[in-house]
C-alpha cells in the first residue's frame, strides 16, 4: 500500500466549511492539515507536502467585491507559480462553493495550470433570483475523464449560495466546454433530466454546476459534497453520495 494520502484544506478569513471538509477527507482515510492562507503565503513551498488541495466553502473576505475574488487574487499573486507546479505534478484540487468561485476567478478553472484562453469567457454571477438559496439538488456527472467522478453517475448535494450562477459569454464558449470535456456536473431532476428552476436552482447556463480543468484533476462545483456523507444527511434518504467523491480521490492518490 502506498504512503498515506496528505490533504491540505485551506482556511482564510470567512471560509466556514473547513471543519466538515476536513472530516469528509478523514472519513475517506486521508491525513488532513488545515492551514490559514497566511501560513501558505509565508512559505508557498508548503504545498509540495500534499497530494490534494481543497478550498472549502464560505465567504472568503466576506465575498467583498465579488464572491471569492479577494482570495483568488491572493492565489494569483502569491501562490501562482506553486499552484501551477502542484497541478502539473499530477495532484488534485477541489473547490466547493466559495472554493469553486475562487478557482474560476483565479483562472484555474476551466483552464487549469496553463489557464488557457478562458479569461473573460466564463464566470460565476449572482443567482437569477437575486438572493441566497439553500436547496438540495440532483447532479449528473458529465466529464468522462476525471478521477473525482464516474461518467453519468447521479449524486445529490445541497447548494447554499447567493452567487452560484454559471455564466458564459457566448454559446460558442458553452459548446467548447462540452467539446473539451470540461463540464463536470449538471443540475438535473430525479430522473436525470435538466429543467428550469428549481431543478436548475440559480439559472446557470447549460445547467452547469461544476467544471474540471483539461486534466480532470482540478474539480470545482457549487454544491456541497461534504454535506452528504452521513446516512441522515440527505433529508429524502437517498444515500450519502458525497462520500464517493472523497473516497475516489484518496484511491486515486494512493494509486499514483
Amino acid at each position: 500500500m502506498a504512503a498515506n494520502v496528505r490533504v491540505l484544506v485551506l482556511r482564510a478569513a470567512g471560509i466556514n466549511c473547513d471543519a466538515e471538509t476536513v472530516f469528509a477527507w478523514e472519513q475517506a482515510g486521508a491525513d488532513v492539515d488545515l492551514l490559514h492562507i497566511n501560513r501558505v503565503m509565508e512559505r508557498p513551498q508548503r504545498l509540495r507536502d500534499y497530494g490534494a488541495l481543497t478550498i472549502p466553502g464560505g465567504f472568503s473576505y466576506g465575498d467583498d467585491i465579488a464572491a471569492g475574488k479577494v482570495l483568488a487574487n491572493q492565489l494569483v499573486h502569491h501562490l501562482g507559480e506553486e499552484l501551477r507546479r502542484f497541478v502539473n505534478d499530477g495532484k488534485l484540487v477541489l473547490g466547493t462553493c466559495n472554493g469553486f468561485q475562487v478557482l474560476v476567478k483565479a483562472g484555474l478553472l476551466p483552464g487549469g495550470a496553463g489557464n488557457g484562453d478562458w479569461r473573460g469567457r466564463v464566470t460565476i454571477a449572482f443567482n437569477e433570483q437575486g438572493r441566497f438559496e439553500d436547496r438540495w439538488v440532483y447532479l449528473r456527472a458529465e466529464v468522462s475523464h476525471s478521477p473525482w467522478l464516474d461518467p453519468g453517475e447521479m449524486v445529490r448535494f445541497p447548494i447554499a449560495h447567493a452567487e452560484g450562477r454559471f455564466v458564459a459569454d457566448s454559446d460558442e464558449t458553452l459548446a467548447r466546454l462540452r467539446t473539451e470535456d470540461l463540464v463536470a456536473l449538471c443540475y438535473v431532476d430525479a430522473e436525470g433530466n435538466p429543467g428550469a428552476f428549481p431543478v436548475n436552482p440559480n439559472g446557470s447556463d447549460d445547467h452547469i454546476a461544476g467544471l474540471t480543468d483539461p486534466t480532470g484533476r482540478v474539480l470545482g462545483l457549487m454544491p456541497h459534497p461534504e454535506r452528504n456523507i452521513h446516512p441522515r444527511h440527505d433529508p429524502l434518504g437517498r444515500g450519502p453520495s458525497g462520500r464517493r467523491i472523497f473516497d475516489r480521490a484518496v484511491a486515486f492518490l494512493r494509486a499514483s
Binding site: N16, F23, A24, R131, F132, D134, R135
Partner: peptide
C-alpha cells in the same frame, strides 16, 4: 427559510 443556510457545519 431558503435564504438561510441550514446545512453548514455538516
Amino acid at each position: 427559510i431558503r435564504q438561510y443556510d441550514h446545512e453548514v457545519q455538516g
